[in-house]
Design a binder for these strands. Structure first.
Lengths: 188, 188
DNA sequence: GCCATTAGGAACTGAATAGTTCCAAACAAG
DNA sequence: CTTGTTTGGAACTATTCAGTTCCTAATGGC
């Protein structure tokens, strides 16, 4: 009954996610989004409403893709809980050492000023809670369950902190040393 | 030989620091600075050059005031190193519980996008290094010096992470629990 | 008291930004 | 083929921002 859309919505959100991931919500301009999504203004605003609505979709996709992936590592039943945690933190080291300084869209959002928006805040905190539950599960699944539950909070903070610092000029060595400290702490 | 300045430069920088502290570098507008500093545009640009130069002065002042204060806690010789660390983290709990959600200008800067600027990055990383050395000193000054040096990195990350999360909608309970985890970890 | 110099301040500039409008082209249903 | 609807896209709008200009007023040395 009418002209069909020429682009795929999911593809567009995926591309938008990449742009927001690189620059953060506030610093991302609509022009950057249009370039990254290979859309024109008309299409973008008709399909998504406005910048914030698009961001919420991108953040939702990030949660479904990246956060879920991390939680999957933390809850995979084949490994001891501590090994899962080491695996997740090890992936941060690996990323930074291979020159990946993208950080984490969720972590950047949590630590940025866009988190003052109630909708963005709610979504980001929900993802963070999933991450916390993942750490909690992993700690409980350690063969020698000797860590207080508060450690899950510490690990979330450590995770967010490290992925945020990954974006800065902090050297790879510093990131590695922090990850080693986490490993040492879990060894005790 | 000429009309004297009607405001005190140091006062103005102090006020500017407060404004940047509240909103972060990027989100701070010159209008907000003018309001907060009780200056007009002419005076501001004549005295400080531009927004970035003013921010660097504010960050320098923050380093001299706030970072030094934290380092002083971490290096005070009358207490055991571990107690000093607990004291510093305890002050985060206390702040959040009393409704102080200002966070830390250094931590916000480190985790924000303005850190891509080389001058801002250099100054922020230098402050962070001072903080790291403070934690390192405190760990070495613990009666039972049983922690690997990498723990200083972990504590910096934890400190930055917590002060960043203090700004978000994260509940005070979560912050407290994280701080308890740090205390527990240092007790072992 | 005069004058060079600098502060204070209002009005301005130009660039960037999010979001809107409008229209021709495309397409599906009948 | 016709018709109604929605897309794609360009041009436009209104706002906000950092930074500039320029004029007046105050001040201290002479």
């Amino acid at each position: 009954m009418a002209r069909p859309r020429e682009f795929d919505i999911d593809d567009a959100v995926t591309r938008a996610m990449a742009v927001f991931w690189e620059h953060g919500y506030d610093a991302t301009t609509t022009d950057q989004l249009l370039g990254g999504m290979r859309l024109t203004r008309g299409s973008l605003y008709k399909a998504f409403g406005d910048k914030k609505a698009l961001f919420l979709r991108a953040l939702h996709l990030y949660d479904a893709q990246e956060v879920e992936k991390a939680v999957a590592v933390l809850t995979q039943p084949d490994l001891d809980g501590i090994e899962r945690i080491n695996l997740l933190f090890g992936s941060i080291t690996a990323a930074v050492q291979s020159g990946d300084r993208m950080g984490c869209l969720l972590c950047s959002t949590l630590s940025g000023f866009s988190v003052n928006d109630p909708e963005i805040s709610a979504m980001a905190l929900a993802s963070a809670a999933k991450l916390h539950d993942g750490f909690d599960r992993a700690l409980k699944d350690s063969r020698e369950a000797k860590f207080p539950t508060s450690y899950a909070r510490l690990l979330v903070t450590q995770y967010v902190g490290l992925r945020v610092l990954s974006r800065t000029g902090v050297s790879a060595g510093v990131i590695c040393e922090s990850v080693e400290a986490v490993e040492a702490l879990l060894r005790r």
